[in-house]
Computed example of a mutant assay.
Amino acid sequence: MIKLGVLDQVYVSEGRTATDGLYEATKLAQETEKLGYARFWVSEHHSMRALAFSSPEVLIAHLAAATSSIRVGSGGIMLPHYSAYKVAENFRLLEALHPGRIDLGLGRAPGGMPLATRALQQDKYVDINKYPQQVLDIVGYFHDKLPAGHPFEKLIASPVIPTAPEVWLLGSSGESARIAAMLGTSYAFAEFFGTPGGEEATHYYNTHFEPNEALEDKPRSMIATLAICAETEEEADRLARSADLLFLGIRTGLEMPYLPSVQTATDYPYTEMDRLHIQQIRQRRVIGTPAQVKEQLLRMGESYNVSEILINTPIHDPEARIRSYELIAKEFGMTGK
């Protein structure tokens, strides 16, 4: 059976605050741990009013401390903004605090608009082509195996510990799959972005994987998708309207300052073009009853040839959101605590 996890972007819901959103994320991590979900990942985005945070490493520390067994990680750290050494130090510390529970997902994307990128990279020259070397440097720091002749060969990423976080490369393109296969890391495809070519990307990764003695000896891939589940099709469709309007704003450049309520989304004055956009967006969504959601997730897992799926569920009502994960867990026969 396919393994399921959680991807939480920690939205600020309409009528609530960022603090509320962070509280809801903590409760969701605790509840999904009880249900038997394998991972709980948080993303990195900057200068977006609808999101309650922009620093995944800080939030990971909080979420890992609030749970006891679920793996907690980044989906992901946008590495070109940062020093590989500092990222290695941060995540080694997290691993020392929570051994065997920390995942480091890495991405090449900016995670925000150009102005945020300029601020993050102020007075710094960034060469995106150095991304593969940055990844290898992090692996070297994690395992105290920087190659001979490396300029930082004798440098230690504290604390020195016997375990290391899992390293995943994230992407929504074939290029990220190529780099992950070449470096021998695990690979996660952002299916919920709606970018075509995901099946080809994961196939390339699985067939061109080169083992890394410090990491993986065989390919390991997963996808992240958006799924909303309820007892009836009608209720699932109703709950999904909030995400429809949120992602419509992202697509059309009219960014929402929050995750809208179902009522706001229902009352919104959609144009015919808006409805066409939503229809297209819905083609990449898993929405329905438990049986329908299970069927679609299993079909996606087979199509992408992955053994793990992270589920992102932007529902305005926090209790309905937890219920969605409960229904999916029950349908898959998951056994938690």
Rank of each mutant, 00 (worst) to 15 (best):
L93W: 08
I60W: 00
E57Q: 11
S83F: 10
M78Q: 10
I60K: 01
H45M: 01
A84M: 07
F40M: 05
F91H: 07
A65S: 12
Q30T: 11
L28E: 01
G75T: 00
E57T: 08
A84P: 01
S68W: 10
A50K: 04
R92A: 06
Y85C: 10
V87A: 04
G75V: 08
P80K: 11
P99G: 11
L59P: 00
G36A: 06
M78I: 12
H81L: 00
V87N: 01
P80T: 13
V72L: 09
R39A: 07
A50H: 09
M48W: 10
L94I: 08
I60D: 04
A25F: 03
M78F: 06
G36E: 05
V72P: 00
E57H: 08
A52L: 02
H46Q: 12
A96I: 15
I60A: 06
H45G: 01
A61Q: 12
L79Q: 00
S83C: 15
A96T: 14
E24Y: 10
G76F: 08
A84S: 11
V42Y: 01
R71P: 03
E95Q: 06
P80N: 12
V42R: 03
S74I: 03
M78C: 10
F91I: 13
T26A: 04
S69K: 15
Y82E: 06
A84T: 07
V42E: 03
L51I: 12
G36T: 11
K86P: 05
Q30F: 06
E24L: 09
P56F: 06
A84V: 05
S69G: 14
V58A: 12
L94K: 02
I77M: 07
E24K: 08
A38D: 14
L35N: 11
R39D: 10
E33Y: 12
Y82S: 02
A52I: 02
H62Q: 14
S54W: 04
K34F: 05
E31N: 13
F40K: 07
L79S: 01
P99Y: 05
W41F: 13
A65V: 14
E24W: 10
R39V: 04
A84Y: 04
S43T: 15
E89G: 11
V42G: 03
H45P: 02
A64G: 00
H45Q: 04
L63C: 09
A25Q: 02
S68R: 13
S55R: 09
Y85T: 11
T67E: 00
Y85M: 12
S47V: 14
L35W: 13
R71L: 04
G73V: 01
F91A: 06
E33V: 11
V42H: 02
A50D: 08
L35K: 12
H45D: 01
S54H: 04
E24H: 12
Y85I: 09
A66M: 15
L94V: 12
